[in-house]
Amino acid sequence: MGETDEDLWRECTTGNADAFGALFDRHADAVFRYCLSRCGSWHDAEELVSITFLEAWRQRDRLRPERDTVLPWLLGVATNANRNRARGSRRHADFLARLPHSDPRHGGHEADHAEAVASRLDAERAVRELLETTAGLNDGERDVVVLCLMNGIGQDEAARTLGVRTGTVKSRLHRARAKLAAMNRDPEPVEQLDTTTVEARLS
């Protein structure tokens, strides 16, 4: 068992860059999935992840380090970063200029490239379709659908991400489900959840 998020974050607040690197390693995938499900573009999501962690480092004194996981807070930073994307990209231009985008056309075998490109396009298409189903929701409802249903984030954690009460997350999810059902466009949760789990998550 390695260091907890709490240990690592404590290190970060004293300026330990390596601890920050370890936290990045731990949460980059989850943050990337969230960014992808927010913006629907693989390329933009890759950038958004680095902007999120840059901002997290700059705001590290705002988080008290005794939390069990920093992921909800990181997703909150990502949420703001996505909203301020145009401005954020400009602000972080010199960092982003050094940022390589993963390009499936370089290196490796031909067949792997084709597969990688295909799976990226698949992912983008799937996310955009999911986002389209949320067109009739307000921003608050979309927030909880993206977090809880598309990313499998728990309601308490989603509440922390959004800076609202758990009850608010519950009621937003409830309203979102009702609206989506009325439109007959209930988004499929990302995990293979049985109905009881979904009900529990929504209750």
Partner: peptide, 10 residues
């Protein structure tokens, strides 16, 4: 690469 850049930046 991003991890390396972030650690440098930090």
């Amino acid at each position: 690469r991003v991890q390396n850049l972030l650690v440098q930046e930090a």
